[in-house]
């Protein structure tokens, strides 16, 4: 059923007219024109669509938009000034870059929880995500670098 869905996206109140069972990914990309969140599989298996809902990673490809009503959604567009962006650029952490948006969101959820993640914690946070180009090690380094920046250290 089509209805007005109201929620916050990257801190800004937004409303979208959409079927409440349409995936949140569809609403973000096609209704709100926020295209940094990617479609990869539609089955919670690759992580390309990962967003944060009330701070927790969620697969936007399957989450009904109605389930996001009244909640705070974060997408990769919201990371423009986050140290993660600078860290991923500094490490040149990517090849094709398609998986990056989702990975950045899981990394943000981790760094929101701890500023001193162990390597094992970073690996665990990123493990739901697939990268086909093989830039994994650079991304792990980038998350550690962003954590160091947030701790006030110079990487």
């Amino acid at each position: 059923m089509a209805l007005e869905i109201a929620f916050r996206v990257n801190g800004t109140p937004r409303t979208a007219h959409a079927d409440d069972d349409a995936p949140l990914l569809h609403v973000l990309r096609n209704v709100l024109d926020l295209k940094a969140t990617r479609f990869g599989c539609g089955a919670e298996q690759c992580g390309a669509c990962m967003v944060l809902v009330d701070g927790a990673p969620a697969y936007a490809c399957t989450l009904p938009a109605g389930a996001a009503a009244g909640r705070a959604v974060e997408t990769a567009e919201g990371l423009a000034d986050h140290p993660l962006r600078a860290a991923f650029l500094a490490e040149q952490a990517g090849q094709c870059g398609y998986c990056l948006s989702g990975i950045l969101m899981s990394a943000k959820a981790l760094l929101d929880r701890t500023l001193s993640p162990s390597r094992a914690e970073i690996v665990a946070a990123l493990d739901p995500h697939l990268c086909r180009c093989g830039a994994h090690e650079r991304m792990l380094r980038a998350v550690a670098r962003a954590a160091a920046t947030l701790r006030g250290e110079t990487p």
């Binding site: 650029l89 040149q92 094709c96 398609y98 990056l100 950045l104």
Partner: peptide, 8 residues
């Protein structure tokens, strides 16, 4: 790469 981080 910059456009691939948060861009379209």
């Amino acid at each position: 790469l910059p456009a691939k981080i948060g861009g379209a």
